[in-house]
């Protein structure tokens, strides 16, 4: 068993020896030496602190990653934070539903028919579960009613026109 192993190892060594050129490429002793020198120069502190001397280089090394999570507890005040991507794309009506635009409303309009372009201009409701999700992704401020005057969305904040969804008591008309 042991003999066979040794013989196999010999065979391997012989193959490596035949490809001597390749071994050199793998090792690259000159590169290793460079790395050692660099390390040594850092440790010997001839240049006091390389990182702080070149802030621009440090800045390039920092990789900014997108985080779109809901912040539940902020660092400074420990408060919940809204997801700004939601505020940029959706609008909340006071009765609880969110409205949104449609995908592709600015794209390839030359090949879309007039009725389709008209439909793309419209704003549509989100579903109940989607509205619930968006409610969770924003703070209290966005769920409060806003009392702007002359706001184009003002007529849509209540649903008094439809008998099932109307909230206010209906006026009483005595029988004649």
């Amino acid at each position: 068993m042991f003999r066979t192993l040794i013989s196999a190892a010999r065979g391997a060594v012989s193959t490596i020896a035949t490809n001597g050129q390749k071994i050199q490429n793998f090792y690259q002793p000159s590169l290793v030496q460079q790395a050692y020198q660099r390390q040594f120069s850092l440790l010997s502190s001839q240049t006091p602190c390389r990182l702080f001397n070149q802030p621009q280089e440090l800045k390039n090394q920092v990789v900014l990653t997108n985080t779109r999570n809901v912040t539940k507890y902020s660092f400074r005040k420990g408060k919940r934070k809204s997801v700004k991507a939601v505020i940029k794309r959706f609008y909340r009506l006071n009765w609880g539903v969110w409205i949104r635009t449609l995908c592709g409303r600015h794209k390839r309009l030359w090949k879309k028919s007039p009725p389709r372009k008209r439909r793309l201009r419209q704003h549509v409701f989100c579903s109940a579960s989607q509205s619930m999700l968006l409610d969770k992704m924003v703070c209290d401020y966005w769920r409060k009613p806003k009392y702007f005057v002359d706001d184009p969305y003002n007529p849509y904040h209540t649903r008094e026109e439809f008998s099932i969804t109307s909230r206010k008591p209906k006026p009483y008309f005595p029988p004649e």
Partner: peptide
């Protein structure tokens, strides 16, 4: 999973074009 994440799908809350609903609120 974090709120709104759809395991690699384009998430619903990022899917639609932006609209300045709350401009200058």
């Amino acid at each position: 999973m974090r709120l709104g994440y759809e395991t690699g799908n384009n998430p619903f809350y990022l899917r639609f074009p932006q609209e300045k609903y709350y401009k200058g609120h």
